[in-house]
Simulated assay, not measured.
Amino acid sequence: MVSFVMSPMKVMSMLMVIFGTGLSLSSEELIGVWLGMELNLYGFLILMNPDGYYTPEPCVKYFVVQSSASILMLGGFMLLMQHFVVGGLVMSVVGVLLKSGVFPLHSWVPSTIKNSSWLASGLMLTWQKIAPLIFLSVIAPLGSLWVVIGLMAGIGGVGGLNQNSVRVMSAYSSFVHTSWMLLGLSWSSVVFASYFVVYSMSVGMFFYGCSLMNKSKVMSQLSGAASGMGLLMLMGMPPFLGFVAKVLVFLMTSSGVIVVCVMGSVVSLKYYIDFFYSMVMKSLADKHKSSVKMMWGLMVIANLMGGALIVMSFI
């Protein structure tokens, strides 16, 4: 963390990523949306491999995919400005689907996540989805959006089965959560924001714990506690925040596609539980560490308090 703060290049890259997303969300013109996503892309490419420790393959693959999506989006925007509505809308939707990694242009996500760093993987599954998903919900026809949501939930639930890589499992898990976020976004931006914050916290805790696994005995146990809590939140198990977020989406929507989302979440429980018992529980084998017990207690209390605050905000 110290090296990240001390590196001007990394700080500027992170600021560019944040500014690009903010520009896309706040812009009233299509070209502003495109420009914000491009600034975000250039900043994020540096964050993917700032020190040269990781293989360049995911950086190249991510750049090619995002550049292709940007070309499609720009072409679609130009057609829309020339009043070619149908062609422009089709090109724009295809570009956004590719950029956000949403069905049917989702196959690049697991392979890119697999070989990326923990920081880059976490950002790809969380922050990098904000602008594309919001823009997709604005321009995509509602009927096609229901199809995308249902298929994303099914692919995420089934695709994650029998995966040995934690990052690949997390990529398929993100497909399920993306279906919930899109469903919430189609009804309420506040519900989407609540779900996104909870999901980002879960992924952050899970990836942070995984990145510290086996560095030392005590650190491994502490990181195991963080990973375990992040997994429980991703599972959507009560009384954790993930369950509260899913309940909010369930109560807000009246579409039958919610049944497919629930089924996808139920199927994904299988690989969540497998990982929880095979990796996380091993790191928590020593139950006499008071620091680990204290961390679990604090995390449970924080989840309960956060859930109560979310519910109270909607009353």
Score class of each variant (00 low, 15 high):
3 S>N: 15
4 F>E: 12
11 V>I: 07
11 V>L: 04
14 M>E: 11
15 L>K: 09
16 M>Y: 11
22 G>C: 00
24 S>V: 07
24 S>P: 02
28 E>M: 14
32 G>P: 02
34 W>D: 06
35 L>N: 10
36 G>L: 11
37 M>K: 10
41 L>Y: 10
42 Y>P: 00
46 I>A: 09
46 I>E: 08
47 L>W: 13
47 L>M: 11
47 L>S: 06
57 E>V: 12
66 Q>T: 05
67 S>N: 07
68 S>M: 14
69 A>E: 05
69 A>V: 04
70 S>F: 09
77 F>Q: 13
79 L>Y: 13
82 Q>D: 11
84 F>N: 00
91 M>P: 09
101 G>V: 01
101 G>S: 03
104 P>M: 03
106 H>P: 00
111 S>Y: 11
111 S>I: 13
115 N>S: 10
127 W>Q: 07
131 A>K: 01
139 I>E: 13
151 L>W: 14
151 L>S: 10
151 L>Q: 10
154 G>Q: 13
160 G>V: 02
162 N>T: 12
165 S>Y: 10
166 V>A: 06
175 F>K: 12
176 V>C: 05
180 W>E: 00
183 L>A: 07
189 S>V: 15
193 A>T: 07
197 V>I: 08
199 Y>K: 00
201 M>Y: 11
206 F>K: 02
213 M>W: 15
214 N>I: 08
222 L>T: 04
233 M>H: 09
235 M>Y: 04
237 M>S: 05
237 M>P: 06
242 G>Y: 03
246 K>W: 01
249 V>T: 07
256 G>S: 06
260 V>A: 05
260 V>S: 05
262 V>I: 12
265 S>H: 02
268 S>G: 00
268 S>T: 04
269 L>R: 10
271 Y>L: 02
271 Y>N: 03
272 Y>W: 10
275 F>N: 02
282 K>S: 09
284 L>I: 03
292 V>H: 09
294 M>N: 13
311 V>Q: 01
312 M>D: 15
